[in-house]
Computed example of a mutant assay.
Amino acid sequence: MIDHALSAARLNLELGRYTDVLEPLEAVERHADRRSDLSLEAKLLRMRLALRLNEYELLSSLSDEIAEEAPANAVMQFERERIINTALRDHGDYEHLPASIDRLVSLAQRLPNEGGSKLHRALSRSLAKIGEVEHALESAQQAVQFAHDENDMRAIGNANLAYAEALRYAGEERQAVEYYRSGIDIGRDIGNRDSELWSWLGLACAYLQIEEYGECQNALKAAHHLTAEPGFDHPIETAHVGLIEALTKILSKSSTDLEGVLKPYALLGISWPEKFVSETQREGRLPSSIPI
């Protein structure tokens, strides 16, 4: 029963049905021994859910609990650090991101496959954020290779998204488009809603960076459709749709409600968009790759 409940929670998380994750998770937490592997897996799933819902205080609290309860469990600590790493990227916390990268690499060395595609996806996206674009591209290429070696379509789609992001940060937007579209197709085909949505957002950014506003709008419409669909909750992705739309309007000299655009980020405790918008307004162009 507990195994079944955990599998149901994991499946609902992967499908983006976040409201359906809690009930089976709570069943596991009621019946599993507090320090058992099943209990820890449930806590890690709850931490992933907190990330998807951008509940960062809860995420931090769960992270501390997992660190305390299973310090010698390399797999658990690696997965915990991957979630922390993503949260740091969400916040644009480039001060603490390098230390997280180092921890990921160290933890991966204790795993049988040394982290495989999961490690290199995280490294690629984090290295791109802190300006180490060449290393980001190298890690992204390794992520794609590992994913194909693992023969895992979910990993392949996620790796293609990571490679697209690295290419976009490197100023290779047209090549990035190819990988974003692959991420979209795979995500849609296998029900990986998170990967599909982030691929649409990245695609919109790529087109905006090369001033193809019509294609940008098409990608934004697809992203908006996913974020607005009843029964799903995507707080930061919804905010990103608004941000990219606002940047498009700024660059095309149209008016936009910046207070309304920035408020969702403020509610999440994320401050970098305000500075990015301000620099775009002042310079009349994007100051850098859009750091979503």
Score class of each variant (00 low, 15 high):
1 M>Q: 12
3 D>L: 05
4 H>V: 14
5 A>I: 06
6 L>H: 09
7 S>T: 07
7 S>F: 09
9 A>I: 03
12 N>F: 14
15 L>H: 14
19 T>F: 05
20 D>K: 12
23 E>R: 15
23 E>F: 14
24 P>S: 12
26 E>W: 13
26 E>Y: 09
27 A>L: 11
32 A>Q: 12
35 R>T: 09
36 S>E: 13
37 D>V: 11
37 D>K: 14
37 D>R: 15
39 S>I: 05
44 L>R: 09
46 R>W: 07
48 R>A: 03
51 L>M: 07
52 R>L: 00
57 E>G: 06
62 L>E: 01
64 D>I: 04
65 E>I: 09
67 A>N: 06
67 A>S: 13
68 E>Y: 10
73 N>F: 10
73 N>T: 08
76 M>T: 14
77 Q>W: 00
83 I>W: 01
84 I>G: 00
87 A>P: 05
87 A>K: 02
87 A>Q: 04
89 R>N: 08
92 G>E: 03
93 D>N: 15
101 I>K: 02
102 D>W: 07
102 D>V: 07
103 R>D: 14
108 A>L: 06
109 Q>G: 10
110 R>S: 11
130 I>H: 05
132 E>H: 03
132 E>S: 02
138 E>G: 04
140 A>D: 05
140 A>H: 05
140 A>S: 10
141 Q>M: 04
141 Q>K: 08
147 A>V: 01
149 D>I: 07
155 A>H: 03
157 G>I: 02
157 G>Y: 06
164 A>Y: 02
169 Y>C: 04
173 E>H: 11
176 A>G: 06
177 V>S: 07
181 R>A: 10
181 R>M: 15
184 I>N: 01
187 G>V: 04
188 R>Q: 09
190 I>M: 07
190 I>Y: 10
192 N>A: 15
197 L>N: 02
198 W>D: 01
200 W>Q: 03
201 L>T: 03
201 L>G: 03
207 Y>D: 05
211 E>Q: 08
211 E>D: 09
221 K>F: 10
222 A>Y: 09
230 P>H: 09
232 F>L: 04
236 I>D: 05
237 E>I: 00
238 T>L: 00
246 A>G: 11
248 T>S: 03
248 T>P: 00
258 L>C: 11
260 G>D: 03
264 P>R: 01
267 L>Q: 12
271 S>L: 12
273 P>L: 12
285 R>M: 13
292 I>E: 02
292 I>A: 00
